[in-house]
Simulated scan of single mutants.
Amino acid sequence: MKIDLSGKTAIVTGSTGGIGLAIAQGLAEAGAEVVITGRSQENVDAALSTITGAARGVVADLGMAEGCAALIAAEQEADILVNNLGVYGRQDYFDISDDEWERYFQINIMSGVRLSRHYAQGMRDRGWGRIQFISSESALNIPADMVQYGVSKSALQGVSRGLAKVLAGTGVTVNTILPGPTRTEGAVSMIKGMADDRGVTPEEMEALFLQEKRPSGLLGRFAAPEEVAAMCVYAASPQASATTGAALKVEGGIVESIS
């Protein structure tokens, strides 16, 4: 199968590192013209320097309505929108403040809601488009130490499924992607902090994390960002025209379900 996205413009939010940058690179390699987004010019420029293919950048804080408006002003149309922007972190449930809940809501959910509301209309009118929301296996398997994160990702899947119904029959597909533990910069930092707390090496802590926190996993390791990106590139392709309203798992078998 050869995926050809030539002539398509793809916006990937939160794409200066981690899974987002890997998705941007994968889309660019498939021929799309990619728009990188981030909160600082320095980070956007650094990400652009790594992309092989056509790419440009927009600096905006997409966790705020004003930032989404700034991106829309800079990029009026897109054929592919990957709502990757998100935050996560371990926190005791009883210490999660109202402000923290609101922060997760704005960044993890409303950024995608706002951008999809705009870009989906142009896709619908042109008769072709791909919208993705990067969710997580934590949406189905909510971690006790990251309840706020899991809940935000569950809500994101609701948005995705609902939007897929809104756009039924238009040529625009909408899907969520569910990664599992993935070796991003943020995950490496989190594992190092846990390792320091336990007095073990990061390598030992990664194995312990999988055994203790994700015991149902079948992969036996953290995924690489490029492995998640491969699913995103396929879902963005013309070949994926019959895949919509779906939750596409790249979680290494953690979710105990055959559906």
Rank of each mutant, 00 (worst) to 15 (best):
K2H: 15
D4E: 14
D4G: 09
T9S: 11
T16V: 13
G18K: 07
G20C: 05
I23R: 10
L27I: 10
G31E: 02
G31Q: 01
A32E: 00
A32L: 01
T37W: 00
G38S: 04
R39W: 00
Q41N: 09
N43H: 10
D45H: 03
S49H: 05
T50D: 02
G53L: 02
A55I: 06
R56A: 12
G57R: 06
G57Q: 07
V59Y: 06
V59K: 05
D61F: 00
L62V: 08
G63A: 05
G67L: 11
A70C: 00
I72Q: 08
A74T: 02
D79T: 03
L81P: 07
N84V: 07
V87G: 08
D92W: 04
I96P: 02
S97Q: 03
R103A: 15
I109Q: 12
I109E: 07
R114L: 06
A120L: 10
A120Y: 05
M123N: 08
M123H: 09
R124H: 15
G127A: 11
G127E: 13
E137S: 14
A139Q: 05
L140C: 02
Y149H: 11
K153H: 03
S154D: 01
L156S: 01
Q157V: 09
A164H: 09
T170H: 04
V174H: 11
V174D: 10
L178Y: 06
L178P: 05
P179L: 10
P181T: 12
T182D: 11
E185M: 05
G186D: 11
A187E: 13
G193H: 09
G199A: 13
G199E: 14
E203P: 03
M205D: 02
L210W: 13
P215S: 06
P215C: 04
S216T: 15
L219K: 11
L219S: 12
E227K: 02
A230P: 04
A230F: 01
M231R: 00
C232D: 04
Y234E: 07
A235W: 03
P238N: 12
G245P: 06
L248Q: 04
K249Q: 09
V250G: 06
V250L: 06
G253T: 05
I254W: 13
I254E: 03
V255D: 13
V255L: 15
E256Q: 13
S257R: 07
